[in-house]
């Protein structure tokens, strides 16, 4: 073993300049949605600050209104309900001040109940717009915009007040 190897072993591996560079805001957002698309909830949630303010308004009726836990529960539920989940990012734009715009399509086949809709193994494709705030390499704020009508229509739900009433069921 060379002296250099010994020193490296004793004092740890040297990081490359690239590794020392913090991720930019847009890189953090790309990383976040890439992790979601790979159904890696742990990595995605690891990029969220512990006290991140998360507003997923379209899910507000289905999950806790608490802004911190609701968001984490939403991402967990999404990854869990769609085992073949894919996230196609159409645009990520740096809006300055740590705010990043993301436009994407979320796709997958339902495999378990999701936001109140029972599982009928339907395919979901849903375009979404997101505003994320990034500070110090972590996401401190998330706002998601999409339409629940489109979500539930694709999952064959018939009424907004009775999400468990599905296509083919008659009152």
């Amino acid at each position: 073993m060379s002296a250099a190897d010994l020193l490296r072993r004793l004092f740890g591996r040297r990081t490359t300049p690239e590794e020392q560079m913090p991720m930019t805001a847009t890189e953090v957002v790309h990383h976040f949605f890439r992790a979601l698309g790979e159904r890696d909830a742990a990595t995605a949630l690891g990029l969220l600050a512990a006290d991140a303010e998360i507003e997923v308004l379209p899910a507000a009726g289905q999950v806790s209104m608490d802004p911190v836990s609701a968001g984490r529960r939403f991402f967990d539920a999404t990854v869990g309900a769609f085992p073949d989940l894919s996230v196609t990012v159409h645009r990520v734009a740096d809006l300055g001040g740590g705010v990043v715009l993301a436009e994407l399509t979320l796709e997958g086949t339902q495999a378990q109940d999701y936001l109140g809709a029972i599982n009928q193994e339907k395919h979901l494709d849903l375009r979404q717009g997101w505003l994320l705030t990034v500070h110090g390499g972590v996401i401190t704020g998330v706002k998601g915009f999409w339409d629940e009508n489109q979500l539930f229509r694709r999952l064959a739900v018939k009424r907004l007040d009775h999400l468990a009433i599905v296509e083919g069921a008659h009152a």
Partner: peptide, 20 residues
Amino acid sequence: ITAYWNNASISRQLGHLEID
């Protein structure tokens, strides 16, 4: 122009609960 919003929320507020 691209716009995103929750149309279901508007439907609820206007008293329309069917998902057409």
